[in-house]
Design a binder for these strands. Structure first.
Length: 880
RNA sequence: GGGCCGUUAGCUCAGCUGGCUAGAGCGUCUGCUCGACACGCAGAAGGUCAGAGGUUCAAAUCCUCUACGGCCCACCA
């Protein structure tokens, strides 16, 4: 024990221990193992990103579960990987190119993709390095990337199957278009921020054809789209416009005559009650157009600049065009009025550009048939959310699911596996075809678009295990058990995995979805790099160690949906956790020096003292509670329970009580046993210190590292004993408090008398309480009994089941004591009054007779205390 | 527009199916080199449980409404 320093050194120990585990092959999952499987697939972070605090929390929880299950004897697989993150990654590389003064179109598709690959290889490793730093016991031999070659086969197989079933189809529709990224997006990739939508509602006059001077006023927030109008619509019941339906309006600037139609979709109360219909630039209007057979005229190009259809406005950006059009309308006296009006504008999730609803040819997945069984999976409880309120978010979305636009007009991603020959025969295939299956033509062209990144993420739980091949891994580790993720991607990712898992494996990909809290900044708002509110987990680990960060985050994992852990708050919280780690380290250090033998079994019971039995019971209860907490995903409770057990019970009471007993084999054995079990209990949360302590305490144990040790099972618990010990500790506390209150030096021994609540308690404790008190508080003598009276010169301290009298005659400040006693008396009287009111209530007596009886007894005690205190006060006052 | 979550000590949070004197950590104050730990030890002070109604013998806890904060979802121009 020569090198047992008073501090754990994470810098030195963490990499060494991680290497030991990794090289020991402990993280490697064995598909041939006879043990039951336990699988967690990591939510793959973006390759080019780095870990933020949310990842640290997410991965800590996953690693806790994996380590715990490993100790429980499961064949565990914690599968790591990264996501190619189509648009995000492409944007990052494009930014690089821009710095070099070029762009992807100049570079060309092939070369550009080469650059992206270089980029991902360069940054991909940083995430893995960070996960290792955190201590995550991932199986690195099974690392996956959503662009792996094997993943390509999975994607194509899925695509082909859905395509052949006509569940993937090509459609001409209005979709969400990002003019900056120049690609289509799915509904879920569009954000609609509450504010920042201040806009106007423009009331524009459209002249009626053939009736000079007459016009219809349409209200719109987007005048620039008027150039693509192909109708004006009113409500069929709107008397104001009844005479106009069937006539034509003349579109200003363009001169096109467009029909005035009636449709229920109009809200008569909004605006003017007449709506311009632009089927190519509004989802609603597109539907209207379909119903009424209207043409759709696209008036913008892919970057949202007005195109040649826009006549005199061609070439202008959409917002410039808006200003110009409004100006010209006013000049032509066609602008009736402009009102303030806020519209929720959709913005690109990736680049924040305002989304343009845009008519184009895209690939879609028909979701309804996929959703039905996935809804059932959650409703039936085969997939459970924790906390369960999140199931509602899932079900609400699933029950109103829309078709999914999966094509993206970017280059980085999985090319859509559809080939078309020069004669227009299209086929979806897994292996790249060389000739057209229909006509044999060799002139095949693959679709230029790539798939939505989330299409590949949806396959993650089985594509990572080798599917479509029936690999050993797939058989052993699918379905996985727990998915730990963020609430923000319940629909984006979790829902789609459930659908795909059911469709292609016939089984839900996991049975439990744990939604971890979202890490907020100090002000309770979402952390963001751009606002500079992010906290780097590496910095905290650097300063306090990975165990401290893990423990701090775990302790915060209660049922709440946000936790504040910003620049300021993260520091004291991690510090607290680090202090706890040091506390535990020193407790074990003490055990190692005081009980140098290496046996670690529970010592035989015959010569156990009260405190030995007590701590054994407390330990068993801790095992039970921690196990239950982990089983129900209450990680904060597991950590909290360990914190109080280790700090209070183990360190403050048990170690202090046994300091004079280390010559006894039982006490030494008990210390070793306690350390051994708590090491195991704490290991999933704090893997590094615990592993280090494991070998420090027993170098011979190095052969079987803690990570492989068995999870403890709770033995007998004794509630009565625990309650009695609490009373004994109260005596100690009472003596300490009295001494402190009167400013008496801790070393000055005083005579003490203890009055127990009843005979039973007295008999159970009287034999040992004196020793307990003697060891923990300086006393000259301890007298004990039931209903003892206060003697002159005694200070009294009242606990739940004991009253402590400490003889301090003449050693205190009388004035202070009078003030204190008066305060105490007032509190006691309030309590007694409350009790009397409750007891005067017959309904209460009838409803809970046992409780009433208890209360009566309590009240009697209270009344005794009150009268005693009054007498004491009188006595004190007389002395003056 | 709909929904979800939160509001408990100066700060950050626990408090399950209603029932002992509402807890913890940090911070503050008092006192401690007591055989691991000052990243420590022993204590203390500090709360109209956001507000208003209701249910109940009994409400921080259940119900309703209000206010404030946060987060999702939604094609009303």
């Amino acid at each position: 024990m020569t090198d047992f320093s008073p501090r754990f050194d994470p810098h030195e120990a963490e990499p060494r221990l991680y290497k030991l585990w990794e090289e020991g092959g402990i993280f490697k999952a064995d598909a041939r193992s006879a043990k039951p499987p336990f699988t967690i697939v990591i939510p793959p972070p973006n390759v080019t990103g780095s870990l933020h605090m949310g990842h640290a929390l997410n991965n800590t929880i996953q690693d806790i579960l994996i380590r715990w299950k490993r100790m429980l004897g499961f064949a565990c697989l914690y599968l790591p990987g990264t996501d190619h993150a189509g648009i995000a990654t492409q944007n990052a590389v494009e930014k690089e190119l821009r710095k070099e003064g070029t762009n992807r179109h100049v570079v060309g598709r092939e070369k550009f993709l080469g650059r992206v690959w270089e980029w991902t290889e360069k940054y991909g490793e940083t995430i893995y390095m960070q996960l290792r730093r955190l201590g995550c016991s991932c199986d690195w031999s099974r690392e996956r990337f959503t662009m792996d070659e094997s993943y390509v086969r999975a994607i194509r197989t899925v695509f082909k199957a859905l395509y052949d079933k006509k569940q993937i189809y090509r459609g001409h529709r209005v979709i969400n278009w990002c003019p900056r990224d120049m690609t289509a997006l799915s509904d879920l990739e569009v954000r609609r921020p509450e504010e920042g939508a201040a806009g106007n509602l423009y009331h524009i006059r459209y002249p009626i054809a053939g009736e000079p001077g007459r016009h219809v006023v349409v209200a719109t927030t987007r005048p620039e789209t008027m150039l693509g109008d192909t109708a004006v619509m009113v409500h069929p019941k709107d008397a104001r416009y009844a005479g106009l339906v069937g006539k034509k309006a003349v579109l200003p600037f363009v001169g096109r005559e467009i029909p005035i139609i009636a449709d229920e979709a109009v809200d008569m109360k909004f605006g003017s009650g007449a709506v311009k219909v632009t089927p190519a630039h509004d989802m609603n209007d597109f539907e209207v157009g379909k119903r009424h057979g209207l043409p759709a005229i696209i008036v913008m190009d892919e970057s949202a600049k007005m195109n040649e259809q826009a006549g005199e406005f061609a070439g202008l950006d959409r917002f410039e065009a808006r200003a110009k059009i409004v100006e010209r309308l006013a000049a032509l006296n066609l602008l009736e009025k402009v009102e303030d009006h806020s519209t929720p504008l959709g913005r690109c999730d990736r680049c924040d550009t305002i989304i343009e609803p845009y008519l184009s040819e895209q690939w879609f997945v028909n979701m309804k048939p996929l959703a039905a069984p996935a809804i059932d999976a959650v409703k039936s409880g085969r997939v459970r959310f924790h906390p369960d309120r999140w199931a509602k978010v899932y079900l609400d979305w699933m029950e109103n699911i829309q078709d999914w636009c999966i094509s993206r007009q970017i280059w980085w991603g999985h090319r859509i596996p559809v080939w078309t020959c020069s004669d227009g025969h299209a086929v979806a295939a897994v292996d790249t075809p060389s000739t057209c299956a229909t006509c044999g033509s060799g002139a095949l062209r693959q679709d230029a678009d790539v798939l939505d990144t989330w299409f590949s993420s949806a396959l993650w739980p089985f594509a990572t295990l080798g599917w479509p091949d029936e690999t050993e891994d797939l058989k052993k580790f699918y379905p996985t058990q727990v998915l730990v993720t963020d609430r923000g991607i319940i629909n984006l990712w979790v829902a789609r995995m459930i659908m795909m898992g059911l469709e292609f494996r016939g089984k839900e990909p996991f049975s439990d979805v744990v939604i971890n809290a979202t890490i907020m900044d100090d002000a309770g708002e979402r952390m963001s790099k751009s606002k500079g509110t992010g906290v780097d987990p590496l910095i905290l680990m650097e300063r306090y160690g990975a165990d401290a960060l893990r423990f701090a985050l775990t302790l915060l994992s209660t049922g709440s949906q946000d936790v504040r852990f910003g620049k300021n708050l993260s520091v004291p919280r991690t510090e607290q956790a680090r202090n706890f780690v040091t506390k535990f380290w020193n407790a074990c250090r003490y055990v190692a020096t005081s009980a140098p033998e290496s046996a670690s079994g529970l010592p035989p019971g015959w010569d156990r003292k009260l405190e030995d039995c007590w701590i054994a019971s407390r330990l068993n209860r801790t095992i039970q509670v921690v196990t239950e907490a982990l089983a129900s995903n209450e990680f904060g409770r597991a950590a909290g329970e360990l914190y109080t057990f280790i700090w209070d019970d183990f360190c403050s009471w048990y170690i202090e009580l046994t300091k004079k007993r280390t010559a006894e084999a039982t006490a030494r054995g008990m210390l070793r046993y306690l350390a051994g079990i708590t090491l195991r209990l704490l290991h999933p949360i704090c893997p590094f210190v615990t592993e280090e302590l494991w070998t420090k305490l027993d170098p011979a144990a190095a052969k079987t590292p803690l990570i492989r040790a068995a999870w403890p099972e709770p033995g007998a618990m004794n509630e009565d004993l625990e309650r009695r010990m609490r009373a004994a500790f109260d005596v100690v506390r009472g003596v300490r408090e009295v001494r402190n209150r009167y400013g008496i030096a801790p070393s000055e021994a005083l005579p003490v008398a203890v009055s127990f609540r009843d005979e039973e308690l007295r008999n159970a404790l009287a034999g040992e309480v004196e020793e307990i008190v003697r060891r923990l508080a300086a006393v000259t003598s301890v007298e004990s009994g039931v209903d003892l009276e206060r003697r002159p010169g005694d200070a009294r301290w009242t606990g739940d089941d004991v009253v402590v009298y400490v003889q301090i005659a003449g050693k205190f400040d009388r004035v202070k004591e009078i003030a204190r006693s008066e305060k105490e008396l007032a509190a006691l009287e309030v309590q007694a009054a409350r009790g009397r009111i409750q007891l005067a209530n017959d309904a209460f007596r009838k409803a809970k007779p046992e409780m009433a009886a208890e209360l009566e007894e309590k009240l009697r005690d209270l009344e005794v205390k009150v009268s005693e205190l009054k007498a004491r006060l009188a006595e004190l006052k007389e002395l003056s």
